[in-house]
Amino acid sequence: MEFLTPPADHPARDRVRAWLREHPHPTPRQLAESGYVAPHWPAPYGLDADPMSQLAIDAELRAAQVAMPENPIAIGWAGPTILAGGTEAQRERYLRPLLAAEEIWCQLFSEPGHGSDLANLSTRAVRDGEHYVVNGQKLWTSDAHVAHLGILIVRTDPDAPKHRGISYLICPMDTPGITIRPVYDMTGTFYLNEVFFDDVRIPAENLVGEENKGWRLAKVTLGNERVSLSGEGALWGHGPSAADLLAKVRAANLDLDPLLRQELAKVWIEGEVLRLIRLRTVTAAVQGRPPGPEASIRKALSDEHGQHIMNLVRDLAGSHGLVKGHDPFGSDDAKTWDHGFCFAPALTIGGGTAQVQRNIIAEQVLGMPRELDVEKGMTWSEARSAVLAAQR
């Protein structure tokens, strides 16, 4: 297919260049107020930019080496959810500081004991006058120890069906009753945390959307999360890519045996497939078409691809791959590869496990039934026949 990219004379390019002449070293607040942090957002927080304009803006800012504000959970997940369901007062209060990275956000969704069954919440919130009183525990909360605010889902109606009776709150992380404990990972550091709520009083004005109807907004957050976790780098959009690895191997002039050459070719092919899927998604957006299944498929593929890259670097290191601090390319990137290899197992867990992603693809893309009817003794052949019949 023909991929669409912004032409060199796209008018958005001239506007960005003119703005950069006036702001050669823009601050995060200036970038936020210009609309360039999230140009596709509606004004006044964005520019109502169409996909082609957004691509042109991003290209010009990258070419100028402009450092964008770093606040991934806020800009990628919390902001779009507040835009979708928040009040005008909430948008005015939170979005501008969020875009400027003046207030860091975290996501308080996952809980211990429930695995990927996110809607099976134990954390409760009870309305008490002008506050919600929250009790419970959250787990795997990235950056909770440095966050100013968090997006929090709680159960407000314990008698409602699982996906109902859930509410979506904005939680100030310095509220009395919140305890944060680090969760160290294989890299030897931590950015994940467990968070405890003991009679935490959150103002009722921090409710996003309607009480007991927060699952719809939680799905908005999760949808943006899975797109955000599928960037170019091997580690959820960060770090080296397959192309970077190939360039390293060529520069080091490594003498590879046929098996390692084959593995290197495989990860490069995977990287190209993912790049082309991304271009298909971008092209669909430019043409005003829904992205289709590519976004879900890309999330599932890119996680395993990141693990393949890091495993291959370990193999390239040979016996030295068993110890920390060795770079098979003879450069100073040992820390990058050590961290990447230890972090890579998390890729197929965070943002929806690989198994959950495949279930989503099976049900929403392939039209397969949610599960076999074991009580009625339904076989896979019968399930396939049922799917085919439903598609006729």
Rank of each mutant, 00 (worst) to 15 (best):
A344T: 13
E375D: 14
S302E: 14
L347K: 13
P172W: 02
A89L: 08
L245H: 07
L256Y: 06
G292P: 07
D327Y: 02
T87I: 08
V267T: 08
E92D: 14
A204W: 03
E111T: 12
G46E: 03
R62N: 10
Y36V: 03
W140S: 13
R358Q: 13
D315M: 08
L301T: 02
E70G: 02
R298V: 00
P42L: 02
K324P: 07
A12V: 12
F109P: 01
R181M: 08
L95F: 10
S122A: 03
A390Q: 14
T123W: 06
E225W: 03
L274W: 02
A284K: 15
A12R: 11
Q355G: 10
S53Y: 01
D332S: 14
Q90Y: 11
G209M: 09
N71D: 09
G233N: 12
A265R: 09
T353H: 08
P6M: 02
A18C: 00
D303K: 09
R216F: 00
L95H: 13
L95M: 13
R127K: 15
L245A: 07
R358P: 02
E33A: 02
E130R: 11
Y168E: 09
G306W: 01
T187H: 07
L83A: 09
L372F: 01
R298K: 14
I151K: 03
D48V: 05
A334N: 06
H145L: 00
D198W: 01
N206T: 03
V286K: 11
G136H: 01
H10D: 10
R280D: 07
T348K: 15
E33D: 07
P290E: 07
G318H: 12
I361Y: 05
F190I: 06
P158Q: 12
I153Q: 09
G306F: 03
L254C: 06
A354C: 10
E382Q: 15
G177E: 11
P161R: 12
G46S: 07
D9F: 00
L149Q: 11
H40P: 00
V282M: 07
H305R: 13
T187D: 05
K335Q: 14
G233T: 08
S331N: 13
A295H: 05
K219N: 11
P26L: 03
H238R: 09
S142W: 04
L366H: 14
L139N: 12
F109Y: 15
N224M: 02
W337E: 12
T156S: 14
L366N: 07
A59S: 15
D185A: 01
I57F: 10
T187C: 07
H10A: 04
S53M: 10
E60I: 07
S228Q: 15
R370M: 09
R62Q: 08
G367K: 10
